[in-house]
Design a protein around this nucleic acid. Structure first.
Length: 734
DNA sequence: CCCCTAGAGTTTTTT
DNA sequence: ACTCTAGGGG
């Protein structure tokens, strides 16, 4: 046997226990920063290098392409090319591969393409129009959520019993129509990929048996994020003999709202016998103080599998909690602290500002801009989601498959070529009446004859697509794409737009050409003796990849930039300096979650994720006053702040540290400490009830300055909020 | 066909 | 308050 020391020597006891387990199944509860990816990577090395399994027998599943790429990189670094043959990818990516391989068994046309969420939305909107349903009553968002939700539970329209519920009845009707539409056009949405892959197992036992005997070991990352369908798919694939190695953290489950079932991770040990459970609790990321705060906070959740993070390192600095007068002040504080950090020798890119909702980034951005601090906002539109890029892709899709109505709808008159709404309606009518695609309907309309102008425009479109297909045959993908961009008129169309936006659109099209030129048909990730055709044409593969990997959202850190992102997109990342801003009731936890214990626990997990992103220094801020949706709010500090032990934190106000000298209590509300400090300055504390001769009763919202000249802000029942100078206002305390 | 305006919506995001 | 989009008017 080879020297295996490099595989196990760098692991701690728990990690080694996990990596070398011989039980049939394993559930690895991996706390934040506990070396989760390391365990997965070393497990694969262990199986192949020590246990003698072929990498061909291993399937590793992740949620994001980024995670898959990182894991692949680390495996190659550890075991070199021995990892070749390993099947690894996202749930959707693997499902796609399977369906390509077995398109016939899956009941799909060979040229099927993927419908991304935006395409799906458009299809649904168009469908609602065709069905003459009022968008007010049947909002496309709701329809989309219904369809995806049902699919993720594994249900087809015929599986849903609407009972006497007219709402569900109609939804099912729409679902049914949507399904028919997709089938006709050869389109598969994201949830459909998973559902078909699941049905593939159920309907074709010989295929299932084949893959069961092939994938002896199945490793799953971020298991707490699996939805019902994904877990079902895994269960069926594992069967009686497959070995599941599940890694996850129930405390970091933050995607319940999009179908993830935290219950899956709790259920796992019950669904399978012989499950070894290992807890990875040693944290290599954060200071003791940060971990203590995180542990205390998450302990407020009832439904937990239980885990306590600890660190061999020292306690580090206390967590700074800053109470801002308003949102602007909060943003300013972030700027000041970043500058301070840099002055003390830190890197700007060490700092991340995390917020609950995207809208919060604007003020922070403005303040950073003003302070001339470079920053980068994560999230937002990804490359393949950009309208101009999708336009080109739609041309390519229609070239590949004329039945693709979604593509047709997008481009038949884009750029404008004189095919008006009236002509389009005629096409749709024919398509509906005769049950054919829009393309076919267009053809029969052309045969019937139209007004000269419409006839010419429509014919030119038809000829364009056909001639693009013709010239594309045998052509490199890159050249075909360039042809599409120029001959479709998109190039000219965007060139006419001299604004900055038009410019950037052209740049994106160049970037797209670049992407097609470097694109390589992927090595069949699931090589197989059963199927004849591993993949479709390079064009089809490129389009599928564009949908499955819409472009890196989480690119590398920009050099020397403060990182701005939502708490959700911070999962999996770490930063020396972390700001959590807007930690206020109503914002975080969000208003929509406060009256639901289940949702509230998810918000708390989100707070836990945020806290555990910090390596050295964590700063939490909240404001007494905030503008939102056009009006003023006077939020209370978040309950999550109260759940952090007092001895972990340092309260800060603009006037300096307001930390009382005495320590002692570790529970109870920090407000006491805070208000004591404030009261010393103004004579009034936040939340004090006061009476004013003219304005009547009110509550103190904010204070500023100290002594006679101090000002306080009071929210009066009748008169609204006012700033008053303490020395003049003659306020009575109630 | 393009531009403008009125109206709606505004937690979180991947695939 | 602000942004996005649909639909109408020029």
């Amino acid at each position: 046997m080879d020297d295996i020391s490099h595989i196990i020597d760098t692991l701690n006891d728990a990690q080694r226990d996990a990596v070398t387990t011989e039980d049939q199944h394993a559930l690895i509860l991996a706390g934040a920063g506990s070396g989760k990816t390391k365990v997965l990577v070393h497990r694969i090395a262990w199986l192949t290098q020590v246990m003698g399994f072929s990498s061909y027998n291993i399937l590793a599943v992740t949620f994001t392409n980024k995670a898959a790429a990182e894991m692949r990189g680390r495996i190659e670094a550890l075991v070199g090319n021995q990892s070749q043959g390993l099947t690894m990818g996202t749930f959707h990516g693997i499902a796609y591969r399977l369906l390509r391989q077995h398109f016939q068994e899956a009941g799909l046309p060979q040229s099927f393409q993927i419908l991304d969420s935006d395409d799906q939305k458009r299809v649904i909107k168009r469908l609602l129009k065709t069905m003459e349903l009022d968008e007010q009553q049947w909002p496309h968002r709701q329809v989309q959520a219904f369809i995806n939700g049902e699919k993720e539970e594994g249900r087809r329209p015929q599986h849903i019993d609407p009972g006497h519920n007219p709402f569900v009845k109609r939804m099912v009707q729409i679902y049914q129509a949507y399904e028919a539409q997709c089938k006709k056009a050869g389109l598969v949405d994201f949830a459909e990929l998973l559902l078909r892959a699941h049905e593939l197992w159920l309907k074709h036992p010989h295929l299932l048996a084949h893959y069961q005997s092939r994938f002896r070991h199945i490793l799953v990352d971020e298991f707490q994020d699996t939805n019902t369908l994904q877990y079902a798919w895994l269960r069926v694939l594992a069967g009686a003999t497959g070995k599941l190695f599940i890694v996850g953290d129930d405390d970091q489950s933050i995607y319940g709202w999009r179908g993830a079932k935290i219950e899956n991770i709790r259920q796992f040990s019950q669904d399978f016998a012989n499950v070894k459970t290992v807890r990875l609790e040693q944290n290599y990321r954060s200071t003791g103080t940060i971990l203590k705060a995180a542990n205390a906070l998450i302990a407020h959740n009832q439904e937990r599998m239980g885990k306590t993070l600890w660190s061999a390192g020292d306690d580090g600095n206390p967590i700074k909690i800053y109470e801002a007068f308003n949102d602007l002040d909060e943003a300013q504080y972030v700027c000041n602290q970043v500058n301070q950090w840099v002055k003390e020798g830190g890197e700007r890119s060490d700092a991340a500002v995390l917020y609950r909702s995207n809208a919060q980034s604007r003020l922070i951005e403005q303040a950073l801009l003003q302070a001339k601090i470079p920053y980068r906002v994560y999230g937002g539109l990804r490359f393949y989601d950009r309208a101009e890029v999708k336009d080109v892709l739609a041309y390519l899709r229609l070239i590949l498959n004329r039945q693709d109505d979604a593509a047709f709808e997008r481009i038949y008159n884009h750029p404008p070529r004189g095919i008006g709404a009236k002509t389009a309606d005629m096409i749709r009518d024919i398509a509906k009446m005769e049950g054919v695609s829009l393309w076919n309907a267009m053809e029969s309309l052309l045969e019937q004859g139209l007004t000269a102008r419409a006839q010419t425009s429509l014919m030119s479109f038809k000829t364009l697509i056909e001639s693009l297909e013709e010239s594309g045959e045998g052509q490199e993908l890159k050249d075909q794409t360039m042809q599409v961009i120029s001959r479709s008129g998109l190039q000219l169309h965007f060139e006419k737009d001299t604004s900055e936006q038009g410019q950037s659109r052209l740049e994106n099209l160049d970037e797209l050409i670049n992407a097609t030129s470097v694109f390589k048909t992927p090595q069949s990730a699931i090589e197989d003796s059963l199927g004849d055709v591993a993949y479709a044409s390079p064009l089809a593969e490129f389009l599928a990849q564009a949908a499955l990997e819409a472009g890196e959202q989480q690119a590398d850190k920009w050099e020397s930039c403060v990182q701005l992102m939502t708490l959700h997109s911070a999962k999996g990342l770490e930063f020396p300096l972390v700001f959590m801003v807007g930690v206020e009731e109503g914002l975080f936890p969000s208003q929509q979650s406060t009256d639901d214990a289940y949702k509230l626990e998810e918000e708390r997990r989100l707070a836990y994720v945020g806290i555990t992103r910090a390596e050295k220094q964590l700063m939490i801020t909240f404001a007494n006053r905030r503008r939102m949706h056009g009006s003023e709010f006077y939020p209370q500090p978040s309950r999550f702040i109260k759940e952090i032990p007092n001895d972990c934190v340092d309260f800060v106000r603009l006037t300096g540290s307001a930390r009382p000298s005495s320590g002692g209590q570790t529970s109870g509300w920090n407000e006491t400490k805070l208000n004591d400090a404030l009261a010393q300055q103004t004579g009034f504390a936040l939340g004090d009830r006061v009476f004013h001769q003219k304005f009547g009763e009110g509550t103190v919202l904010a204070t500023e300055g100290a002594g006679e000249h101090a000002r306080i802000q009071v929210n009066f029942k009748a008169a609204g909020s006012k700033w008053l100078v303490v020395g003049f206002a003659k306020l009575e305390r109630l």
